[in-house]
Design a binder for these strands. Structure first.
Lengths: 163, 163
DNA sequence: TTGGCGACGTTATAACGTAACATTATTGGA
DNA sequence: TCCAATAATGTTACGTTATAACGTCGCCAA
């Protein structure tokens, strides 16, 4: 069975409920197997992050939570974000002070984020050649963390209206 | 005449006054040739950024300026930083909300920043293989801006005390 | 010589993030 | 079962980073 080469970018008209639901279900499973507590607020924050494929700010998340009648303080959100970051369920986008769901939290991985400035969609890739090239470019330097955020225009926006 | 391969990392005991003075002198020259106004506050902010090879925050800069008796508001610093960023005299380090002087503002270039978590020193590299690998890893995506910040331990800190 | 524009001053506030300590929930062991 | 330890959350207050909006000043060119 052949697969079409999938772009890292989700189609603009894909059914997003599936992404969100699947991400949350997988987080649930992973937390169970790792003996981590997937509490209500952590779930709610993860769900808010997954409300789209665009970066979501901490205070957007807070507003979303509180719109449902809750009255959380920023700390609550930041703590949940810390948990989700530490366990690989989300990534931070430093250049935007925002967060995005990780599409494959099952395994540790490098990631390079492609951010469309037109539609806001973020795609995550993990290119071994990029990682190798970086390592080779920094001889003698012991790499620990990478922040790689590339912005530009995604394939869908390029092929659509050029307005 | 052979050159030793220079590390991108400045030696911890180099004479830093030269770096700073040269950066400012070159900015002066470049602004003149580009018909840009290198005003007093822009010069002062650039000097503050170049006070070391470590990232400097906007409010650190503000404090440094005001320590000399001035009474600037944050806006003044941010405006100067915007000017310096737009014209390539400094880079922003998103992962630290801070700024670093660019060692070669004469020409446009990609940059990848290596940040030592031990001594704080930042080295700027411009690796064509990294740029190529990224481009290849993102087919169909029109790259416009790159934020590449790698943290780890620099050669000097690795070879020094391992405490 | 004045009109336009770029730079800067000033005030206020938005947006992002954390310290410190109190309280509640969970869980594993006696 | 109940207790003690620990993890999670609540709460208050504050620190840090960044920008909006509008006024003034000064330069330079028509």
């Amino acid at each position: 069975m052949s697969r079409r080469p999938r772009s890292a970018f989700p189609s603009p008209d894909h059914d997003h409920r599936g992404c969100s639901a699947s991400a949350i279900a997988r987080a649930e499973t992973l937390c169970a197997s790792r003996k981590l507590r997937f509490t209500a607020i952590r779930r709610a924050v993860l769900k808010a992050v997954w409300q789209s494929h665009s970066p979501v700010g901490a205070y957007d998340i807070l507003a979303k939570l509180n719109a449902k009648g809750a009255d959380h303080a920023p700390m609550a959100v930041y703590r949940a974000l810390d948990f989700l970051l530490e366990n690989g369920f989300i990534h931070r986008i430093s250049s935007q002070n925002a967060f995005i769901g990780c599409p494959h939290p099952e395994t540790e991985h490098d990631s390079q984020l492609l951010i469309c400035r037109r539609c806001g969609t973020v795609a995550e890739i993990d290119s071994a050649p990029v990682t190798r090239a970086l390592k080779a470019a920094a001889p003698g330097f012991a790499i620990e963390q990478r922040t790689i955020e590339i912005s530009g225009v995604c394939p869908h926006c390029r092929s659509g209206a050029h307005a």
